[in-house]
């Protein structure tokens, strides 16, 4: 729909205040349309003009922080990354992300997702932990090795994939696409040596086995990450591991510093702040 075809938009918002309401309900607000308005801009306008007590999460306004994931016109997306005009309607229907409890209004309770995420150790696991805290150099990693996990590292943990996943909706033990995708991201990182530690969780019921490959997680991801692919690749890795056919991976060593090359134009690294 052309932006010129309307001057006002209707926001239909699912409201819920646990201190006041027994159940969620819908409320509608008419606000002026401003060209270039995102759904998040509209929410701010609703708060400014119609519902000062409306609650949601947002921060960066540029699709990086992952705070403003919500169900917009039936699809989980980032409010800051969604233009009102791209919805093709002058009615914007906004609800909190499904598959999570509601804290209030459009604020989902994401703690279970981050519990699952934490359980899968989403960080580099190495025996030389000291090198991570006090690096003496850089880990060697080829461009090909980087390619193996790069797209999965774009995940911003917004929870849109979790909200779209039909398996996570029904299976309380399933870790969900975000934690599993991130486990795969680190399992395939040549600098990581934590596969065995993550396998403790992945080999059981919380692992990728319940995935039906509906692919909704990949369809809704606002960053173009493909968690469904990560889950299938992870299944393959785990099957090969069970059959003892998985290639053992030595975590990347610290690369030797270049010698005999003078690069005076590159300044010294700043002092550590932490």
């Amino acid at each position: 729909m052309s932006a010129k075809s309307f001057t006002e938009v209707t926001y239909r918002i699912r409201r819920y205040n646990p201190e006041r309401d027994s159940a969620p309900h819908w409320e509608e607000y008419r606000i002026p349309y401003i060209p270039g308005m995102t759904v998040l801009d509209g929410l701010w306008k609703v708060k400014e003009l119609r519902a000062p007590d409306l609650a949601w999460r947002s921060s960066c306004r540029m699709g990086v922080c992952g705070s403003c994931g919500m169900l917009i016109n039936g699809k989980a997306r980032l409010a800051c990354n969604t233009q009102v005009t791209e919805l093709g309607s002058d009615t914007v229907v906004v609800a909190p992300l499904p598959n999570f409890d509601i804290v209030r209004d459009l604020v989902p309770e994401l703690a279970p997702m981050f519990d699952n995420h934490r359980a899968l150790q989403p960080h580099l696991v190495r025996e030389d932990a000291r090198e991570l805290d006090e690096p003496t150099g850089e880990f060697y990693q080829s461009a090909h090795e980087l390619e193996q996990y790069l797209q999965f590292s774009y995940c911003i943990k917004c929870g849109c994939c979790m909200a779209a996943c039909p398996t996570y909706a029904t299976d309380a033990l399933y870790s969900g696409p975000m934690p599993l995708g991130q486990a795969h991201r680190y399992n395939t990182d040549s600098r990581d040596g934590g596969f065995a530690a993550r396998r403790e969780v992945l080999a059981g019921e919380a692992g990728p086995w319940r995935c039906h490959y509906a692919g909704e997680c990949s369809r809704v991801c606002p960053k173009g990450v493909d968690p469904a692919k990560a889950i299938q690749l992870m299944k393959r890795e785990l099957v090969l591991d069970y059959l003892r056919l998985r290639k053992a991976k030595c975590p990347a060593k610290v690369a030797a510093k270049p010698s005999g090359v003078r690069r005076p134009e590159i300044p010294e690294a700043p002092a550590k702040t932490v």
Partner: peptide, 10 residues
Amino acid sequence: MMRDQKLWTW
């Protein structure tokens, strides 16, 4: 405990 990794492979 039945391990899903094993069961899935089989």
